[in-house]
């Protein structure tokens, strides 16, 4: 594994102002992520973990401090990052394949795009549905298409905001397993935001624990377990207990 720092946040703070007052969402965040690393950010709802991800994505600007991606200051979204949102957010008027190809068509040309679309659809096991419209898909299928869209973008880092949280338990655990396979095949950097401790432990190499109001990073844990991970081992259970205690 290469040891280049890909994402670096220095003393990042974020305060939202609205008509009824200001909310300090993040304070003094120092965070770094190496290339090819899989990091999860966990915390109770309202701890600013989504805001943190959105800053890395360039969808939100920090109020203080600085954020860097691949050594460059983050000024907005970029071709090197792709976001998977909590909801699939597919364009209802485009078919599955058009949803995936839309962001990449003009860069890659139609022939290359065609190849990429086919490849990512195979990866998420959705090849049979390339001509389907989003309304014809179930929640799990739509989310897989959203993941495929992010993969097709060929980013340096995948930024995922609770992508599995809206799914039923079985679909979720199946998708998690598929995703781990996918990550090991593509070896891409992944930053995953989740409130599900078990999900973080099954998927990631490092878990960043955040606490709310204002959102701060409490601790960063290395997860020394081998893949695929078993939820029933003593180590797993101990880690889960420990993180749960830290979050509360």
């Amino acid at each position: 594994m290469s040891s280049n720092v890909l994402v670096e946040l220095q003393n990042v703070g974020k305060t939202f102002h609205s008509a009824w007052g200001s909310v300090e969402a993040l304070r003094d965040i120092n965070f770094s992520c190496f290339e090819s690393e899989f990091i999860s950010i966990v915390g109770a709802s309202g701890c600013g973990k989504t805001t943190l991800l959105r800053i890395i994505a360039g969808l939100e600007k920090p109020s203080s401090g600085e954020a860097f991606f691949n050594g460059e200051k983050i000024e907005g979204p970029g071709y090197d990052r792709a976001v998977v949102f909590q909801e699939p957010r597919l364009f209802p008027w485009l078919t599955v394949e058009k949803n995936i190809s839309l962001p990449i068509q003009s860069q890659k040309g139609s022939q290359k795009t065609e190849q990429i679309v086919e490849q990512v659809l195979r990866l998420v096991e959705m090849s049979n549905f390339r001509k389907a419209y989003p309304y014809e898909l179930s929640g799990g299928m739509a989310q897989r298409v959203a993941i495929a869209r992010a993969l097709a973008f060929e980013p340096k880092a995948l930024l995922m905001d609770e992508p599995f949280s809206a799914l039923d338990a079985q679909t979720r655990s199946r998708l998690q397993l598929q995703f781990i396979d996918l990550w090991r095949k593509t070896n891409r950097t992944v930053i995953l935001v989740t409130h599900d401790i078990e999900e973080a432990l099954i998927l990631s190499q490092k878990v960043v624990i955040m606490t709310p109001s204002p959102g701060t990073i409490k601790e960063t844990l290395e997860i020394p377990l081998a893949y695929p991970r078993n939820k029933d081992t003593l180590e797993f259970i101990e880690l889960r207990k420990y993180i749960l205690k830290s979050i509360l």
């Binding site: 969808l59 907005g76 979204p77 990052r81 792709a82 949102f85 957010r89 364009f91 008027w93 962001p103």
Partner: peptide, 25 residues
């Protein structure tokens, strides 16, 4: 606005934003 944000995150050109997001919706 969530779809518009997808357009931003995936670096769609203003032209594509209008043709593929604003007009169809």
């Amino acid at each position: 606005p969530k779809l518009v944000e997808v357009g931003r995150a995936y670096m769609l050109t203003p032209m594509k934003m209008v043709c593929r997001i604003y007009i169809p919706s």
